[in-house]
């Protein structure tokens, strides 16, 4: 008979504890939790880059928005798609120009604002 997986009783007890805690700590999400998604007013204060993706045989234009003060707040939106890559590239360029607050590109992102951790 093959050796079965086993865990020490103390660990198992702890696991059960966590399991029963779930019913107290885990609650249903609220409607307001999704506000960040619906409330897109902050998109006017963002740095924007465009991104082209080939999906289902067409070039899809995505715009990536990143808040210029808190760069960790960012969002990708799918705008439209074109079958011609050249046309898609041109459309993406104009859309980015339209969406960006800073059209001349003088705003810069500081890598230190990102608070990157190595793990």
């Amino acid at each position: 008979m093959k050796r079965a997986f086993s865990m020490p009783p103390e660990l198992y007890a702890k696991m059960l504890d966590e399991l029963s805690n779930l019913f107290f700590t885990e609650k249903l999400g609220l409607d307001s939790d999704m506000n960040f998604y619906r409330n897109d007013f902050w998109l006017t204060d963002t740095a924007v880059i465009d991104m082209l993706l080939l999906r289902k045989g067409a070039w899809e234009i995505n715009l990536l928005f990143a808040h210029h003060k808190t760069p960790l707040k960012f969002l990708s939106r799918r705008i439209t798609s074109h079958s011609c890559p050249k046309r898609a590239r041109i459309m993406a360029f104009y859309m980015r120009r339209l969406a960006a607050k800073d059209q001349r590109g003088t705003l810069s992102l500081d890598i230190n604002d990102l608070n990157l951790t190595l793990n």
Binding site: S6, P9, Y12, A13, L16, D17, S20, F23, F24
Partner: peptide, 22 residues
């Protein structure tokens, strides 16, 4: 292995009581 199962079963019952108390 059976003893291990028993240990788990006992623990489950005990923790369940704690949970009901909570």
């Amino acid at each position: 292995r059976w003893r291990e199962c028993i240990g788990k079963m006992l623990l489950q019952i005990r923790k369940r009581l704690d949970y009901y108390v909570n």
